[in-house]
Simulated assay, not measured.
Amino acid sequence: MRNVAGRRMMLNGTEIYVEESGTGETWVVFESGGGASRTLWDRVVPLLGDIAHTVAYDRAGRGRSGRPAEPQTIDDMAATLVALVQAVATGQVILVGHSMGGLIVRRAAETLSPAGLVLIDPTPEAAPNYDNWEPTAKKTDRILAAQQALSHVPPLMRILTSSYGRKFPADSYATMLAEDFTPAGLTTTRHEIAAVAAAIDEFRRRPPEPPKSGVIVISAMHAARYQARNLDLMREYQRRYAEQVGAQYEDAVSEHIIPAEQPEQVADAIRRLVNA
């Protein structure tokens, strides 16, 4: 998978690294969750090459993309996604977002009016556990700061990120270690967590317009130990969002990184929207 050729494009003042593959009249554009780059989709993209033109990219500050002048907000990230789609897509577009990426694609969809959305364990901003999320965000930042200090020692990062090594192909995991689990990559991850914290109130005050196309929400049934406390709340409010916008809702026998644990389910959801 990691032999996919990429190209760099100047979008909204930052050089963005983009990988494209597959054929078809439909363009499927992937938006990764916080802390993740294009490699998140390495187990999904090969399953779609016969039906769609796929686009995976690194957000500003991630992977092989350039560093933005200032930390990005969720709206900044959505604006870059809009610019990317407008620059590359020549047919109907399906947006696929994981976790924080769900916020980004929902905001971008207001401008793009895509043919469909697939939201994979998306961040449900209405969930009560986000009512006072600032302490959690600060705790997460402290953990990431500690990881950042340890990232100068590659063997330690392999231990800390070993779960990714079990879930992804070896070449994908090697790329993550070289690009995401680095001092610079973890700096961007810290900025992204802060962006989510700032976006919660904004999305509650000004929620994205309901999509005018088909939507599929895929919800993780399991959680890592540190996420388990809020699992039921997150799933309930993902379900409520699906009901609110008339989306299809389905469970995934997976923890949060569904694209790695259940790539066939993700690809099947995308195929259903392509065929629709």
Score class of each variant (00 low, 15 high):
Thr123Val: 05
Glu202Tyr: 02
Gln72Ser: 14
Thr187Leu: 15
Asp121Ala: 06
Thr140Arg: 06
Ala267Cys: 02
Asn12Ala: 13
Asp251Thr: 13
Ala115Ser: 11
Gly214Leu: 06
Ile258His: 01
Thr80Tyr: 15
Ala198Glu: 01
Gly116Cys: 05
Thr123Cys: 08
Met221Thr: 11
Asp232Tyr: 03
Gln227Asp: 14
Gly116His: 10
Gly165Thr: 03
Asp251Gly: 07
Ile257Trp: 12
Met221Gln: 05
Gln86Arg: 13
Asp251Gln: 11
Asp201Ala: 08
His256Val: 04
Arg43His: 04
Asp50Cys: 00
Arg64Lys: 03
Asn132Asp: 07
Thr182Met: 00
Met100Asn: 15
Thr187His: 07
Val4Glu: 13
Pro169Cys: 06
Asp201Ser: 07
Gly13Thr: 08
Leu119Trp: 11
Ser172Glu: 03
Tyr173Lys: 03
Thr26Arg: 08
Ala260Glu: 02
Ile270Glu: 06
Glu31Thr: 13
Thr189Phe: 15
Thr123Asp: 09
Pro154Cys: 00
Arg235Val: 02
Tyr173Pro: 03
Asp76Tyr: 06
Ala184Glu: 06
Lys138Leu: 07
Trp27Cys: 14
Ala197Cys: 05
Gly214Arg: 04
Pro114Ser: 10
Ala224Tyr: 12
Ala109Phe: 06
Thr23Met: 15
Arg107Leu: 09
Leu84Val: 06
Ala87Trp: 12
Ala127Trp: 09
Gly61Trp: 05
Val45Trp: 01
Ser162Asp: 10
Asp131Gln: 05
Glu264Trp: 12
Arg190Glu: 01
Ile218Asn: 05
Leu112Asp: 08
Pro46Gln: 14
Asn12Trp: 09
Ser113Leu: 05
Asp232Met: 12
Leu177Thr: 00
Ala252Met: 12
Val88Cys: 07
Thr136His: 08
Glu15Asn: 06
Pro122Gln: 08
Leu150Met: 02
Val29Asn: 14
Gly214Gln: 04
His222Val: 15
Pro114Tyr: 00
Leu231Arg: 13
Ala242Met: 06
Val29Tyr: 03
Ile16Phe: 11
Pro122Glu: 01
Tyr130Phe: 02
Thr39Phe: 06
Lys138Met: 01
Ala109Tyr: 00
Val93Lys: 04
Gly6Cys: 07
Val196Met: 10
Ala194Ser: 10
Val44Glu: 00
Tyr237Lys: 03
Thr187Ile: 15
